[in-house]
Design a binder for these strands. Sequence first.
DNA 1: TGTACATCAGTGAACGCGCGTTCACTGATGTAC
DNA 2: TGTACATCAGTGAACGCGCGTTCACTGATGTAC
Lengths: 229, 229
Amino acid sequence: MSHTSPTPAAVATTRRAQKLRTRRTLLDAALGLLEHQSLSSLGLREVTRAAGVAPAAFYRHFADTAELGVALVEEALDGLHPMVGAILTDTATGSGTASASASEESRIARSVALIARHVRDHPAHVRFVTREQHGGVRPVRAAIGTQLQRFTEEVAAGLAGRPEAEGWSAEDLRMLAGIYVDHLVMTASGFLDAAEEGATRTEEQVAALARRQLRLVALGRRHWLDRDR
Amino acid sequence: MSHTSPTPAAVATTRRAQKLRTRRTLLDAALGLLEHQSLSSLGLREVTRAAGVAPAAFYRHFADTAELGVALVEEALDGLHPMVGAILTDTATGSGTASASASEESRIARSVALIARHVRDHPAHVRFVTREQHGGVRPVRAAIGTQLQRFTEEVAAGLAGRPEAEGWSAEDLRMLAGIYVDHLVMTASGFLDAAEEGATRTEEQVAALARRQLRLVALGRRHWLDRDR
DNA sequence: TGTACATCAGTGAACGCGCGTTCACTGATGTAC
DNA sequence: TGTACATCAGTGAACGCGCGTTCACTGATGTAC
């Protein structure tokens, strides 16, 4: 009278599909457990217990928990590309009527709202990435670093194609893109903090701070080329 | 024929001093082990083994490894105050002859150099703080958050006393201070990455990026008050 | 200064427990004919 | 379509090991007189 289906037979399906389903169960179980601990303290047996499979079944999918962690990184950061794309696209589309700074202000607000939404929709993935970005498991740290680097390049490329970027060196653009990516990660982490029970800041406070910061960056950006008087 | 002194008798001393010495040994042993793992996976026996004392001795100093972690946080971030003070003082002292932007440029360079120096002098402490800032041990995370908040207030207060801050609201100043603190932590973490064997960036690249970012922030800061045209 | 007793930092042995890993297995799915 | 064999995802029992915690202890330091 168990709730789980101990053998594949319980649901008629292909072997491939069933294996993927078990893999998903393991990843989801791990993600749940990682809400309150870091990967380096996550046990293989802990994951299989939460997933409702035998410990040995783990090895059909991952060599160890570090490998599972890398899979989670890929999943979490693949899910970020659409949002980054949306922000870049929005930023590129200038409004017709409002003043430059007014439309910029609303673009900033929309970007921050998109980040808030993403964190609300995928809190576990976001928490995992921010936690493991500097965490104790090297392959996972490396995977996150590589992916964030790719985001920076992506943002830099997006910025490069726009009129305000004229006269900017490639290195300056990468610097600016890096600021945006860093800011994204920090703001996402702030939204997570705000969602916790004992939070010191509200979600709106985090958003207000994020917008203020983006305003400062936008100002610096506007005056970048004439910075030496 | 052991290298360690298993009993206090080996070195004539007061009880208080000997206890503090053992505590130090435990903290140092832990700090060493934390170079390559995170606190949540650090074992009590692992620490005592590295420190050369019996496992049970641990309890004379800390209830568990989380408490040891909080002690390390306090140590690590107390050591940061002098540097922040130095940067603030330096920033306040304008040079007489050079142009405003030239003296600013050299102040930026000095600040980044101070960060680089601090990381070189205290790599283990810095690594520990950046790793545990979003790590899996709640009391440690909370302690780091509180301390960084205090730094932000400290920097905000330092900025408030200076002429360029005239017209700035308290909230805007705290935002700016937060940017500087965040930037400090990220740059420190970057210097750590650069010092690793398989590093993708050199120390000078990290420094150059940090300076570029500070330049952008300085520009935004200069135009903050007239930002609505 | 000397003595008798109290304190307490550190010891070492013992405990029960959950860990990661291995192994031969089972039985449903997949494939060849 | 039917049959015989191969594959392989998941099982469950077993293993040795290191963990955190407890306990009575030792012996140097501290204190009272």
